[in-house]
C-alpha cells in the first residue's frame, strides 16, 4: 500500500512538473525525486517480500493494510512538508523577498 501511494504520488507530481511551468519554478522536481526514489526502493523491498511470502504477499491482514495506508499518506505529507520548507527557504518566486 505504501508503494502504491508513493508511486501514485510520483506519477501525479511528474505530470504536474511536465504540464506546468509555474510548478517547475516552484521546484516541484524535488517532490518527483523523493517519490520516485522511494517508489523504486519500496519496489525492491516488495520484490524481496514477495520472494519470501509468495501468494500471501497479496492478501495482507486488514490491520497491516490500514497501517500501511496511514504510513503511505504520512510519507506524502512529510514529502510535502519538506518541499514547502524548501520553497519558503529558496523563495523561487521572490514572494518573501519582495513583501512589504
Amino acid at each position: 500500500m505504501t508503494l502504491l501511494i508513493s508511486a501514485l504520488a510520483a506519477v501525479i507530481t511528474t505530470l504536474i512538473w511536465y504540464v506546468s511551468e509555474k510548478a517547475r519554478v516552484m521546484k516541484i522536481g524535488i517532490l518527483c525525486y523523493m517519490f520516485w526514489g522511494a517508489s523504486i526502493m519500496w519496489f525492491v523491498d516488495a520484490v524481496a517480500e514477495y520472494i519470501e511470502l509468495r501468494d500471501a504477499y497479496f492478501t495482507p491482514a486488514l490491520e497491516d493494510m490500514v497501517n500501511d495506508t496511514f504510513l503511505g499518506l504520512s510519507v506524502v505529507v512529510l514529502a510535502l512538508l519538506i518541499w514547502v520548507g524548501y520553497v519558503l527557504i529558496k523563495d523561487p518566486m521572490k514572494v518573501i523577498a519582495n513583501r512589504k
Partner: peptide, 20 residues
Amino acid sequence: KRLNGLLWGGSGLLAFEHLW
C-alpha cells in the same frame, strides 16, 4: 544531481518508514 535527488529523497522517506 538527479541521482543525488533520487538517492537522498528515497532513503529519506524510507528512513521515515523505518522510524514508523
